[in-house]
Design a protein around this nucleic acid. Structure first.
Length: 564
RNA sequence: GGCCCGUUCGUCUAGGGGUUAGGACGCUAGAUUUUCAUUCUAGUAACAGGGGUUCGAUUCCCCUACGGGCUACCA
Protein backbone atom coordinates (compact mmCIF):
# COMPACT_ATOMS: atom_id res chain seq x y z
CA UNK A 1 0.00 0.00 0.00
CA UNK A 2 1.13 3.50 -0.77
CA UNK A 3 1.97 5.47 2.27
CA UNK A 4 0.09 8.73 2.19
CA UNK A 5 -0.15 10.99 5.21
CA UNK A 6 -1.50 14.40 5.72
CA UNK A 7 -1.11 17.35 8.00
CA UNK A 8 -4.47 19.06 8.25
CA UNK A 9 -4.41 22.28 10.21
CA UNK A 10 -7.24 24.73 10.34
CA UNK A 11 -6.32 28.29 9.49
CA UNK A 12 -7.58 29.83 12.68
CA UNK A 13 -4.33 31.52 13.49
CA UNK A 14 -0.68 30.67 13.75
CA UNK A 15 0.52 27.13 14.01
CA UNK A 16 2.06 26.46 17.37
CA UNK A 17 4.94 24.17 18.16
CA UNK A 18 2.66 21.25 18.90
CA UNK A 19 1.19 21.58 15.46
CA UNK A 20 4.63 21.76 13.95
CA UNK A 21 5.56 18.58 15.75
CA UNK A 22 2.50 16.82 14.38
CA UNK A 23 3.48 17.98 10.92
CA UNK A 24 7.04 16.83 11.55
CA UNK A 25 6.04 13.34 12.62
CA UNK A 26 3.81 13.03 9.58
CA UNK A 27 6.64 14.22 7.41
CA UNK A 28 9.20 11.87 8.93
CA UNK A 29 6.82 8.97 8.62
CA UNK A 30 6.08 9.79 5.00
CA UNK A 31 9.72 10.16 4.03
CA UNK A 32 10.80 7.12 5.97
CA UNK A 33 8.26 5.05 4.10
CA UNK A 34 8.90 6.70 0.76
CA UNK A 35 5.39 8.02 0.91
CA UNK A 36 3.60 11.26 0.23
CA UNK A 37 3.15 14.23 2.51
CA UNK A 38 -0.04 16.18 2.02
CA UNK A 39 -1.06 19.52 3.42
CA UNK A 40 -4.78 19.97 3.63
CA UNK A 41 -6.40 23.12 4.91
CA UNK A 42 -9.41 22.40 7.08
CA UNK A 43 -11.34 25.61 6.98
CA UNK A 44 -14.87 24.38 7.45
CA UNK A 45 -15.52 26.93 10.15
CA UNK A 46 -15.78 30.23 8.39
CA UNK A 47 -16.31 32.06 11.66
CA UNK A 48 -12.88 31.19 12.89
CA UNK A 49 -11.05 31.82 9.68
CA UNK A 50 -8.12 34.14 10.11
CA UNK A 51 -6.70 35.84 7.04
CA UNK A 52 -3.06 35.10 6.50
CA UNK A 53 -3.07 31.98 8.62
CA UNK A 54 -2.63 29.68 5.64
CA UNK A 55 0.37 31.61 4.45
CA UNK A 56 1.75 31.58 7.94
CA UNK A 57 1.38 27.82 8.15
CA UNK A 58 3.11 27.27 4.84
CA UNK A 59 5.90 29.66 5.64
CA UNK A 60 6.44 27.98 8.98
CA UNK A 61 6.64 24.53 7.49
CA UNK A 62 9.00 25.78 4.84
CA UNK A 63 11.28 27.32 7.44
CA UNK A 64 11.31 24.02 9.28
CA UNK A 65 12.24 22.10 6.18
CA UNK A 66 9.02 20.14 6.22
CA UNK A 67 8.38 19.81 2.54
CA UNK A 68 4.94 19.22 1.16
CA UNK A 69 4.28 16.96 -1.80
CA UNK A 70 0.63 17.72 -2.34
CA UNK A 71 -1.21 20.77 -1.18
CA UNK A 72 -2.79 24.02 -2.16
CA UNK A 73 0.49 25.38 -3.49
CA UNK A 74 1.91 22.18 -4.81
CA UNK A 75 -1.21 20.79 -6.41
CA UNK A 76 -1.73 17.07 -6.79
CA UNK A 77 -4.10 14.49 -8.17
CA UNK A 78 -6.40 14.50 -5.22
CA UNK A 79 -7.15 18.17 -4.94
CA UNK A 80 -8.42 20.60 -4.19
CA UNK A 81 -6.65 20.59 -0.87
CA UNK A 82 -8.76 23.12 0.90
CA UNK A 83 -12.05 22.07 2.37
CA UNK A 84 -13.98 25.24 1.70
CA UNK A 85 -13.22 24.70 -1.97
CA UNK A 86 -14.38 21.12 -1.71
CA UNK A 87 -17.66 22.17 -0.18
CA UNK A 88 -19.82 20.55 -2.84
CA UNK A 89 -18.30 17.15 -2.22
CA UNK A 90 -19.50 16.60 1.29
CA UNK A 91 -23.25 16.94 1.01
CA UNK A 92 -23.70 13.75 -0.98
CA UNK A 93 -22.03 11.73 1.74
CA UNK A 94 -24.23 13.24 4.38
CA UNK A 95 -27.24 12.28 2.25
CA UNK A 96 -25.87 8.80 1.84
CA UNK A 97 -25.74 8.49 5.59
CA UNK A 98 -29.28 9.73 5.95
CA UNK A 99 -30.55 7.30 3.38
CA UNK A 100 -28.88 4.39 5.06
CA UNK A 101 -30.29 5.45 8.41
CA UNK A 102 -26.89 6.29 9.85
CA UNK A 103 -27.81 9.92 10.23
CA UNK A 104 -30.82 12.14 10.67
CA UNK A 105 -31.96 15.72 10.35
CA UNK A 106 -32.16 17.70 13.54
CA UNK A 107 -34.05 20.97 13.83
CA UNK A 108 -33.27 21.94 17.37
CA UNK A 109 -31.86 25.42 17.54
CA UNK A 110 -28.61 26.13 19.33
CA UNK A 111 -30.63 28.07 21.89
CA UNK A 112 -32.91 25.13 22.58
CA UNK A 113 -29.98 22.84 23.07
CA UNK A 114 -28.23 25.31 25.27
CA UNK A 115 -31.37 25.50 27.37
CA UNK A 116 -31.40 21.74 27.74
CA UNK A 117 -27.82 21.75 28.86
CA UNK A 118 -28.40 24.42 31.44
CA UNK A 119 -31.45 22.63 32.68
CA UNK A 120 -29.62 19.34 33.04
CA UNK A 121 -26.72 20.90 34.86
CA UNK A 122 -29.04 22.68 37.22
CA UNK A 123 -30.63 19.47 38.37
CA UNK A 124 -29.12 17.25 40.97
CA UNK A 125 -27.94 13.90 39.81
CA UNK A 126 -30.59 11.69 41.36
CA UNK A 127 -33.40 13.88 40.15
CA UNK A 128 -31.95 13.74 36.75
CA UNK A 129 -31.73 10.00 36.42
CA UNK A 130 -35.31 9.69 37.59
CA UNK A 131 -36.45 12.11 34.97
CA UNK A 132 -34.58 10.30 32.33
CA UNK A 133 -36.11 6.94 33.10
CA UNK A 134 -39.55 8.42 32.72
CA UNK A 135 -38.72 10.63 29.85
CA UNK A 136 -38.04 8.17 27.14
CA UNK A 137 -40.71 5.55 27.26
CA UNK A 138 -39.14 3.63 24.44
CA UNK A 139 -36.20 2.47 26.38
CA UNK A 140 -36.90 3.20 29.96
CA UNK A 141 -35.51 -0.03 31.32
CA UNK A 142 -32.32 -0.40 29.40
CA UNK A 143 -31.04 3.08 29.82
CA UNK A 144 -31.00 3.23 33.57
CA UNK A 145 -27.71 1.56 34.12
CA UNK A 146 -24.48 1.64 32.27
CA UNK A 147 -25.55 3.42 29.18
CA UNK A 148 -27.34 6.64 29.86
CA UNK A 149 -25.52 8.02 32.84
CA UNK A 150 -24.41 11.43 31.82
CA UNK A 151 -24.11 12.73 35.33
CA UNK A 152 -26.06 15.93 35.16
CA UNK A 153 -25.11 16.60 31.61
CA UNK A 154 -27.32 16.81 28.61
CA UNK A 155 -26.03 15.21 25.47
CA UNK A 156 -27.68 14.72 22.13
CA UNK A 157 -27.48 10.97 22.29
CA UNK A 158 -29.48 7.79 22.17
CA UNK A 159 -31.11 8.50 25.50
CA UNK A 160 -32.29 11.95 24.53
CA UNK A 161 -32.68 12.02 20.79
CA UNK A 162 -36.21 10.70 20.85
CA UNK A 163 -37.26 13.69 22.91
CA UNK A 164 -35.94 16.24 20.49
CA UNK A 165 -37.02 17.77 17.22
CA UNK A 166 -35.53 15.66 14.50
CA UNK A 167 -36.40 13.37 11.64
CA UNK A 168 -36.47 10.47 14.05
CA UNK A 169 -39.31 11.96 16.06
CA UNK A 170 -41.15 14.17 13.59
CA UNK A 171 -43.51 12.80 10.94
CA UNK A 172 -41.90 12.46 7.55
CA UNK A 173 -44.23 15.00 5.95
CA UNK A 174 -43.36 17.51 8.60
CA UNK A 175 -39.66 17.00 8.04
CA UNK A 176 -40.06 17.42 4.31
CA UNK A 177 -42.11 20.53 4.79
CA UNK A 178 -39.63 22.09 7.17
CA UNK A 179 -36.74 21.43 4.85
CA UNK A 180 -38.68 22.76 1.89
CA UNK A 181 -39.52 25.89 3.81
CA UNK A 182 -35.92 26.49 4.53
CA UNK A 183 -36.03 25.77 8.22
CA UNK A 184 -32.43 25.50 9.42
CA UNK A 185 -31.27 22.03 10.32
CA UNK A 186 -28.18 20.01 10.91
CA UNK A 187 -27.41 16.41 10.10
CA UNK A 188 -26.35 14.26 13.01
CA UNK A 189 -24.73 10.89 13.12
CA UNK A 190 -26.88 8.24 14.74
CA UNK A 191 -24.77 6.15 17.01
CA UNK A 192 -26.00 2.65 17.76
CA UNK A 193 -27.38 2.51 21.24
CA UNK A 194 -25.12 0.07 22.93
CA UNK A 195 -22.28 -1.25 20.92
CA UNK A 196 -18.67 -1.82 21.81
CA UNK A 197 -16.35 -0.17 19.32
CA UNK A 198 -12.89 -1.63 19.24
CA UNK A 199 -10.24 0.52 17.65
CA UNK A 200 -6.57 0.09 16.93
CA UNK A 201 -4.12 2.87 17.55
CA UNK A 202 -0.54 2.52 16.40
CA UNK A 203 0.71 4.16 19.56
CA UNK A 204 -1.80 3.09 22.16
CA UNK A 205 -2.80 -0.32 20.97
CA UNK A 206 -6.39 -1.35 21.37
CA UNK A 207 -8.84 1.27 22.52
CA UNK A 208 -12.44 0.38 23.16
CA UNK A 209 -15.46 2.44 23.96
CA UNK A 210 -19.18 1.85 24.16
CA UNK A 211 -21.43 3.87 21.89
CA UNK A 212 -23.72 4.48 24.83
CA UNK A 213 -21.28 7.06 26.10
CA UNK A 214 -21.14 8.87 22.77
CA UNK A 215 -23.36 11.64 21.53
CA UNK A 216 -24.77 12.17 18.08
CA UNK A 217 -22.24 14.49 16.58
CA UNK A 218 -23.20 17.05 14.01
CA UNK A 219 -21.83 16.06 10.63
CA UNK A 220 -23.32 18.79 8.56
CA UNK A 221 -23.99 22.28 9.79
CA UNK A 222 -26.93 24.51 9.06
CA UNK A 223 -24.69 26.82 7.07
CA UNK A 224 -24.19 24.13 4.48
CA UNK A 225 -20.69 23.22 5.57
CA UNK A 226 -19.65 19.87 6.93
CA UNK A 227 -18.10 19.69 10.36
CA UNK A 228 -14.54 18.58 10.84
CA UNK A 229 -15.62 15.00 11.41
CA UNK A 230 -17.37 14.46 8.11
CA UNK A 231 -15.00 16.49 6.00
CA UNK A 232 -12.01 14.84 7.57
CA UNK A 233 -13.19 11.31 6.99
CA UNK A 234 -14.44 12.00 3.49
CA UNK A 235 -11.22 13.72 2.49
CA UNK A 236 -8.98 11.13 4.03
CA UNK A 237 -10.85 8.50 2.09
CA UNK A 238 -10.88 10.43 -1.17
CA UNK A 239 -7.24 11.38 -0.83
CA UNK A 240 -6.32 7.79 -0.10
CA UNK A 241 -4.72 8.59 3.21
CA UNK A 242 -3.06 5.50 4.65
CA UNK A 243 -2.12 6.76 8.09
CA UNK A 244 -3.72 9.42 10.21
CA UNK A 245 -1.14 10.82 12.58
CA UNK A 246 -2.57 13.53 14.79
CA UNK A 247 -2.66 14.83 18.34
CA UNK A 248 -4.18 12.95 21.21
CA UNK A 249 -6.94 15.51 21.52
CA UNK A 250 -8.56 13.66 18.64
CA UNK A 251 -8.68 10.31 20.35
CA UNK A 252 -12.16 10.90 21.77
CA UNK A 253 -13.57 11.35 18.29
CA UNK A 254 -11.90 8.27 16.89
CA UNK A 255 -15.01 6.13 17.52
CA UNK A 256 -17.04 8.53 15.40
CA UNK A 257 -14.52 8.44 12.64
CA UNK A 258 -14.25 4.68 12.71
CA UNK A 259 -18.02 4.35 12.62
CA UNK A 260 -18.20 6.80 9.76
CA UNK A 261 -15.87 4.66 7.70
CA UNK A 262 -18.06 1.69 8.47
CA UNK A 263 -21.30 3.53 7.72
CA UNK A 264 -20.00 4.84 4.42
CA UNK A 265 -18.89 1.38 3.43
CA UNK A 266 -15.22 2.26 3.51
CA UNK A 267 -14.16 0.04 6.35
CA UNK A 268 -11.66 -1.85 4.25
CA UNK A 269 -10.02 1.40 3.17
CA UNK A 270 -9.84 2.89 6.59
CA UNK A 271 -6.45 4.42 7.39
CA UNK A 272 -4.46 3.38 10.40
CA UNK A 273 -4.50 5.81 13.27
CA UNK A 274 -1.77 7.11 15.52
CA UNK A 275 -2.54 9.60 18.26
CA UNK A 276 0.46 11.55 19.42
CA UNK A 277 0.92 12.49 23.06
CA UNK A 278 0.47 16.16 23.76
CA UNK A 279 3.08 18.77 24.53
CA UNK A 280 2.44 20.21 27.97
CA UNK A 281 3.42 23.52 29.49
CA UNK A 282 6.77 23.53 31.33
CA UNK A 283 5.03 24.25 34.60
CA UNK A 284 1.48 24.44 35.74
CA UNK A 285 -1.15 22.42 34.03
CA UNK A 286 -2.41 21.69 30.66
CA UNK A 287 -1.32 21.39 27.13
CA UNK A 288 0.57 24.08 25.40
CA UNK A 289 -1.81 26.25 23.48
CA UNK A 290 -1.78 29.05 20.98
CA UNK A 291 -3.12 31.38 23.55
CA UNK A 292 -0.02 30.93 25.64
CA UNK A 293 1.67 33.25 23.19
CA UNK A 294 4.63 34.80 24.92
CA UNK A 295 3.23 34.48 28.41
CA UNK A 296 5.38 31.53 29.32
CA UNK A 297 8.68 33.21 28.63
CA UNK A 298 9.48 31.38 25.43
CA UNK A 299 7.95 31.37 21.98
CA UNK A 300 5.22 28.92 21.17
CA UNK A 301 5.24 29.74 17.48
CA UNK A 302 7.81 28.70 14.90
CA UNK A 303 8.01 32.15 13.38
CA UNK A 304 6.86 35.50 14.55
CA UNK A 305 3.15 36.10 14.23
CA UNK A 306 1.29 39.31 14.05
CA UNK A 307 -2.39 38.97 14.66
CA UNK A 308 -4.42 40.76 12.01
CA UNK A 309 -7.20 41.25 14.54
CA UNK A 310 -5.43 42.55 17.59
CA UNK A 311 -2.23 43.67 15.95
CA UNK A 312 -0.44 41.86 18.71
CA UNK A 313 2.87 40.29 17.85
CA UNK A 314 3.97 36.95 19.25
CA UNK A 315 7.56 35.91 19.04
CA UNK A 316 8.78 32.99 17.01
CA UNK A 317 11.64 30.56 17.33
CA UNK A 318 13.16 31.91 14.16
CA UNK A 319 13.28 35.46 15.38
CA UNK A 320 14.46 34.33 18.80
CA UNK A 321 17.64 33.03 17.27
CA UNK A 322 16.93 29.36 16.82
CA UNK A 323 18.35 27.47 13.91
CA UNK A 324 15.50 25.66 12.23
CA UNK A 325 17.40 22.38 12.41
CA UNK A 326 17.75 22.77 16.15
CA UNK A 327 14.09 23.61 16.52
CA UNK A 328 13.16 20.50 14.58
CA UNK A 329 15.60 18.34 16.49
CA UNK A 330 14.19 19.56 19.77
CA UNK A 331 10.65 18.92 18.63
CA UNK A 332 11.48 15.44 17.42
CA UNK A 333 12.71 14.56 20.88
CA UNK A 334 9.45 15.60 22.45
CA UNK A 335 7.52 12.36 22.55
CA UNK A 336 9.85 10.36 20.38
CA UNK A 337 13.28 8.91 21.01
CA UNK A 338 15.62 6.78 19.00
CA UNK A 339 16.29 4.27 21.76
CA UNK A 340 19.99 5.08 21.61
CA UNK A 341 21.91 7.74 23.38
CA UNK A 342 22.27 9.94 20.37
CA UNK A 343 20.21 13.07 20.48
CA UNK A 344 21.46 15.33 17.76
CA UNK A 345 19.96 14.46 14.42
CA UNK A 346 19.78 16.04 11.04
CA UNK A 347 16.47 15.88 9.25
CA UNK A 348 17.85 13.14 7.02
CA UNK A 349 18.90 11.10 9.99
CA UNK A 350 15.51 11.56 11.56
CA UNK A 351 13.86 10.34 8.40
CA UNK A 352 16.16 7.36 8.43
CA UNK A 353 15.39 6.17 11.94
CA UNK A 354 11.97 7.54 12.73
CA UNK A 355 9.25 5.13 13.64
CA UNK A 356 5.90 5.39 15.30
CA UNK A 357 6.78 2.48 17.58
CA UNK A 358 9.22 4.71 19.37
CA UNK A 359 6.72 7.42 20.08
CA UNK A 360 5.79 7.50 23.75
CA UNK A 361 2.31 7.39 25.18
CA UNK A 362 2.42 10.12 27.75
CA UNK A 363 2.42 13.85 27.32
CA UNK A 364 5.70 15.67 27.65
CA UNK A 365 6.40 18.95 29.29
CA UNK A 366 8.35 21.27 27.12
CA UNK A 367 11.65 22.36 28.63
CA UNK A 368 13.02 25.63 27.24
CA UNK A 369 16.41 24.94 28.85
CA UNK A 370 16.81 21.77 26.88
CA UNK A 371 15.79 23.57 23.72
CA UNK A 372 18.41 26.20 24.41
CA UNK A 373 21.06 23.58 24.90
CA UNK A 374 20.23 21.86 21.64
CA UNK A 375 20.36 25.17 19.82
CA UNK A 376 23.74 25.84 21.39
CA UNK A 377 25.03 22.53 20.13
CA UNK A 378 23.80 23.31 16.63
CA UNK A 379 25.48 26.68 16.66
CA UNK A 380 28.76 25.05 17.62
CA UNK A 381 28.36 22.59 14.78
CA UNK A 382 28.09 25.30 12.17
CA UNK A 383 31.23 26.59 10.55
CA UNK A 384 32.11 30.20 11.16
CA UNK A 385 31.33 31.07 7.57
CA UNK A 386 27.91 29.41 7.67
CA UNK A 387 27.09 31.19 10.86
CA UNK A 388 28.29 34.45 9.43
CA UNK A 389 25.81 34.06 6.61
CA UNK A 390 22.92 33.34 8.93
CA UNK A 391 23.77 36.01 11.44
CA UNK A 392 25.18 38.57 9.10
CA UNK A 393 22.22 39.86 7.25
CA UNK A 394 21.48 37.39 4.52
CA UNK A 395 19.02 35.73 6.83
CA UNK A 396 15.36 36.49 6.70
CA UNK A 397 15.44 39.16 9.31
CA UNK A 398 19.03 39.94 9.68
CA UNK A 399 18.94 42.25 12.60
CA UNK A 400 21.30 41.24 15.30
CA UNK A 401 19.86 42.34 18.50
CA UNK A 402 19.26 45.89 19.37
CA UNK A 403 22.29 47.74 18.26
CA UNK A 404 20.09 50.28 16.63
CA UNK A 405 21.61 49.86 13.25
CA UNK A 406 19.31 48.44 10.71
CA UNK A 407 22.06 47.47 8.37
CA UNK A 408 21.31 44.56 6.17
CA UNK A 409 24.47 44.82 4.21
CA UNK A 410 27.13 42.19 4.19
CA UNK A 411 29.07 43.92 6.86
CA UNK A 412 28.47 43.39 10.47
CA UNK A 413 27.80 46.64 12.10
CA UNK A 414 27.41 49.75 10.05
CA UNK A 415 29.71 52.60 10.52
CA UNK A 416 28.15 55.83 11.45
CA UNK A 417 29.71 59.23 11.87
CA UNK A 418 31.06 58.62 15.31
CA UNK A 419 34.61 57.58 15.42
CA UNK A 420 33.73 54.89 17.87
CA UNK A 421 31.88 52.69 15.47
CA UNK A 422 33.68 50.57 12.97
CA UNK A 423 32.60 48.13 10.38
CA UNK A 424 34.27 44.88 9.67
CA UNK A 425 34.67 43.24 6.37
CA UNK A 426 33.21 39.83 5.77
CA UNK A 427 36.46 38.11 6.51
CA UNK A 428 36.85 39.83 9.84
CA UNK A 429 33.20 39.10 10.57
CA UNK A 430 33.77 35.43 10.09
CA UNK A 431 36.71 35.66 12.44
CA UNK A 432 34.60 37.43 15.04
CA UNK A 433 31.97 34.72 14.78
CA UNK A 434 34.64 32.14 15.38
CA UNK A 435 35.71 33.95 18.51
CA UNK A 436 32.30 34.37 20.07
CA UNK A 437 30.23 31.47 18.84
CA UNK A 438 30.97 29.15 21.70
CA UNK A 439 29.29 31.55 24.03
CA UNK A 440 26.20 31.92 21.89
CA UNK A 441 23.04 30.00 22.73
CA UNK A 442 20.99 31.83 20.17
CA UNK A 443 21.88 33.57 16.96
CA UNK A 444 20.55 36.70 18.54
CA UNK A 445 23.23 36.49 21.21
CA UNK A 446 25.77 37.55 18.68
CA UNK A 447 25.54 41.27 19.16
CA UNK A 448 25.64 41.01 22.90
CA UNK A 449 28.77 38.92 22.68
CA UNK A 450 30.52 40.86 19.98
CA UNK A 451 29.43 44.47 20.00
CA UNK A 452 32.82 45.62 21.25
CA UNK A 453 34.42 44.55 18.01
CA UNK A 454 32.35 47.22 16.34
CA UNK A 455 32.03 49.89 18.96
CA UNK A 456 34.73 51.13 21.27
CA UNK A 457 33.62 51.14 24.88
CA UNK A 458 32.22 54.46 25.97
CA UNK A 459 31.78 53.49 29.54
CA UNK A 460 33.60 51.01 31.68
CA UNK A 461 32.28 48.38 34.02
CA UNK A 462 32.43 49.96 37.48
CA UNK A 463 33.36 46.84 39.39
CA UNK A 464 36.10 45.97 37.02
CA UNK A 465 37.50 49.47 37.15
CA UNK A 466 37.58 49.38 40.88
CA UNK A 467 39.25 46.03 40.93
CA UNK A 468 41.64 46.39 38.04
CA UNK A 469 42.50 50.00 37.36
CA UNK A 470 44.87 51.04 40.12
CA UNK A 471 47.71 53.42 40.89
CA UNK A 472 50.31 52.51 38.34
CA UNK A 473 47.97 51.13 35.75
CA UNK A 474 48.18 54.16 33.54
CA UNK A 475 51.94 53.86 33.23
CA UNK A 476 51.73 50.16 32.61
CA UNK A 477 49.24 50.71 29.84
CA UNK A 478 51.50 53.19 28.20
CA UNK A 479 54.18 50.54 28.25
CA UNK A 480 51.73 48.03 26.82
CA UNK A 481 51.15 50.37 23.94
CA UNK A 482 54.84 50.38 23.29
CA UNK A 483 54.98 46.62 23.33
CA UNK A 484 52.15 46.51 20.85
CA UNK A 485 53.79 49.11 18.68
CA UNK A 486 56.84 46.99 18.57
CA UNK A 487 55.04 43.79 17.82
CA UNK A 488 54.92 44.27 14.11
CA UNK A 489 51.21 43.92 14.16
CA UNK A 490 49.83 45.11 10.90
CA UNK A 491 47.10 47.65 10.97
CA UNK A 492 43.68 46.41 10.18
CA UNK A 493 43.03 46.05 6.52
CA UNK A 494 46.29 44.56 5.48
CA UNK A 495 45.10 41.11 4.90
CA UNK A 496 47.92 38.91 5.76
CA UNK A 497 48.40 35.61 7.44
CA UNK A 498 46.39 34.10 10.14
CA UNK A 499 46.26 33.34 13.84
CA UNK A 500 49.93 33.86 14.21
CA UNK A 501 49.56 37.49 14.95
CA UNK A 502 47.60 37.01 18.12
CA UNK A 503 50.27 34.63 19.18
CA UNK A 504 53.02 37.07 18.43
CA UNK A 505 51.51 39.73 20.54
CA UNK A 506 50.75 37.25 23.26
CA UNK A 507 54.34 36.15 23.48
CA UNK A 508 55.58 39.68 23.43
CA UNK A 509 53.31 40.86 26.18
CA UNK A 510 53.89 37.80 28.29
CA UNK A 511 57.63 38.11 27.93
CA UNK A 512 57.43 41.72 28.89
CA UNK A 513 55.28 40.89 31.93
CA UNK A 514 57.75 38.25 32.99
CA UNK A 515 60.71 40.55 32.51
CA UNK A 516 59.10 43.30 34.55
CA UNK A 517 57.98 40.73 37.10
CA UNK A 518 54.39 41.87 36.97
CA UNK A 519 51.26 39.84 37.61
CA UNK A 520 49.21 38.69 34.68
CA UNK A 521 45.99 40.07 36.08
CA UNK A 522 47.62 43.39 36.69
CA UNK A 523 48.00 43.92 32.97
CA UNK A 524 45.37 41.76 31.38
CA UNK A 525 42.41 43.06 33.32
CA UNK A 526 42.97 46.73 32.58
CA UNK A 527 43.80 45.84 29.01
CA UNK A 528 40.50 44.05 28.64
CA UNK A 529 38.78 46.91 30.32
CA UNK A 530 40.23 49.30 27.80
CA UNK A 531 39.32 47.18 24.81
CA UNK A 532 35.97 45.76 25.87
CA UNK A 533 34.81 47.87 28.75
CA UNK A 534 33.53 44.86 30.63
CA UNK A 535 34.66 41.53 32.04
CA UNK A 536 33.56 39.53 29.06
CA UNK A 537 34.51 38.35 25.66
CA UNK A 538 37.11 36.16 24.01
CA UNK A 539 40.83 36.20 24.73
CA UNK A 540 42.36 39.66 24.75
CA UNK A 541 44.99 38.76 22.18
CA UNK A 542 42.37 37.49 19.80
CA UNK A 543 40.48 40.70 20.24
CA UNK A 544 43.61 42.69 19.55
CA UNK A 545 44.22 40.74 16.41
CA UNK A 546 40.78 41.57 15.05
CA UNK A 547 40.86 45.16 16.21
CA UNK A 548 44.22 45.81 14.65
CA UNK A 549 47.07 47.86 15.94
CA UNK A 550 45.65 51.33 15.46
CA UNK A 551 42.29 50.67 17.01
CA UNK A 552 43.81 48.79 19.90
CA UNK A 553 46.11 51.61 20.74
CA UNK A 554 43.38 54.15 20.26
CA UNK A 555 41.20 52.33 22.76
CA UNK A 556 43.94 52.06 25.31
CA UNK A 557 44.63 55.73 25.03
CA UNK A 558 40.97 56.51 25.34
CA UNK A 559 40.75 54.39 28.48
CA UNK A 560 43.76 56.11 29.95
CA UNK A 561 42.17 59.44 29.28
CA UNK A 562 38.79 58.56 30.71
CA UNK A 563 39.90 56.47 33.65
CA UNK A 564 42.85 58.64 34.69
C1' G B 1 -19.72 14.96 36.70
C1' G B 2 -19.22 11.38 32.35
C1' C B 3 -16.04 8.96 28.69
C1' C B 4 -11.09 8.04 27.05
C1' C B 5 -5.67 8.15 27.52
C1' G B 6 -1.54 8.16 30.61
C1' U B 7 2.13 7.70 35.25
C1' U B 8 10.72 5.74 35.69
C1' C B 9 15.40 11.34 38.62
C1' G B 10 12.86 18.58 38.95
C1' U B 11 12.35 18.00 33.16
C1' C B 12 12.96 14.88 28.43
C1' U B 13 13.69 9.80 28.46
C1' A B 14 16.25 4.35 28.06
C1' G B 15 15.21 -0.21 30.12
C1' G B 16 12.52 -4.38 31.52
C1' G B 17 10.22 -10.46 35.79
C1' G B 18 16.44 -11.22 39.10
C1' U B 19 20.27 -4.35 36.55
C1' U B 20 25.19 -0.77 40.79
C1' A B 21 17.74 1.22 37.05
C1' G B 22 21.41 4.02 31.87
C1' G B 23 21.71 8.85 29.12
C1' A B 24 20.56 14.14 28.33
C1' C B 25 18.96 19.06 30.32
C1' G B 26 19.12 21.52 34.98
C1' C B 27 21.56 22.01 39.58
C1' U B 28 26.20 21.46 42.85
C1' A B 29 31.49 20.89 43.21
C1' G B 30 36.34 20.63 41.07
C1' A B 31 39.75 21.43 36.77
C1' U B 32 41.05 24.83 32.70
C1' U B 33 41.06 30.39 32.10
C1' U B 34 43.78 37.32 32.08
C1' U B 35 37.35 38.32 32.09
C1' C B 36 32.58 36.20 30.87
C1' A B 37 31.31 32.03 28.75
C1' U B 38 32.68 27.41 26.68
C1' U B 39 34.92 22.78 27.63
C1' C B 40 36.29 18.64 30.84
C1' U B 41 35.64 15.67 35.39
C1' A B 42 32.77 14.32 39.44
C1' G B 43 28.34 14.56 42.27
C1' U B 44 22.91 15.14 43.04
C1' A B 45 18.34 12.80 41.88
C1' A B 46 13.39 8.35 39.84
C1' C B 47 10.35 3.14 39.06
C1' A B 48 2.96 7.27 42.48
C1' G B 49 0.43 4.08 46.48
C1' G B 50 -2.11 -0.54 47.76
C1' G B 51 -3.38 -5.33 46.50
C1' G B 52 -2.56 -9.64 43.63
C1' U B 53 0.34 -13.34 40.01
C1' U B 54 5.38 -15.23 40.89
C1' C B 55 10.79 -18.33 44.02
C1' G B 56 11.30 -13.12 42.71
C1' A B 57 8.12 -7.45 40.60
C1' U B 58 9.95 -1.16 38.89
C1' U B 59 8.54 -4.50 34.76
C1' C B 60 2.34 -8.59 34.15
C1' C B 61 -3.06 -7.95 36.29
C1' C B 62 -6.61 -5.16 39.42
C1' C B 63 -7.90 -0.99 42.48
C1' U B 64 -6.84 3.90 44.30
C1' A B 65 -4.45 8.45 43.69
C1' C B 66 -2.59 11.87 40.51
C1' G B 67 -1.91 14.05 35.56
C1' G B 68 -3.91 14.90 30.68
C1' G B 69 -7.59 15.07 26.76
C1' C B 70 -12.61 15.31 25.17
C1' U B 71 -17.46 16.46 26.55
C1' A B 72 -19.99 23.04 20.59
C1' C B 73 -23.94 23.68 14.31
C1' C B 74 -14.57 24.67 16.81
C1' A B 75 -11.03 22.24 14.74
Amino acid sequence: MNCRVRFAPSPTGPLHMGGVRTALFNYLFARHNKGTMILRIEDTDQNRYVPGAEEYIMESLAWCGINIDEGIREGGEYGPYKQSVRKEIYRQYADLLINSDWAYYAFDTPEELEGKRQEAEGKSKDQESGLKAQGSGLKAQGSGEGSGQKGGKFAYDSTYRMELRNSLTLPEEEVKRMIAEGEPYVIRFKFPENEEIVMQDLIRGEVRVNTASLDDKVLFKSDGMPTYHLANVVDDYLMKISHVIRGEEWLPSLPLHVMLYKALGWASDMPQFAHLPLILKPSGNGKLSKRDGDKLGFPVFPIEYKSPETGETSSGYRESGYLSEAFINMLALLGWNPGTEQEIFSMDQLVEIFSLERVGKSGSRFDPEKAKNINHQYIQQKTDAELFCVVGGSGDSGDLGDSGDSGDSDDLGDSDDLGNTRSLSGVEGVKVIGLVKERMNFLTDFWDQAYFFFEAPEEYDAKMVKKGWKEGTKERMIQVIQVIEGSGLKAQGSSEGSGLRAQVIETNIKEWIAKEELGMGMIMNPLRLALVGAPKGPGVFDIIEVLGKEETIRRIQQAIKILA
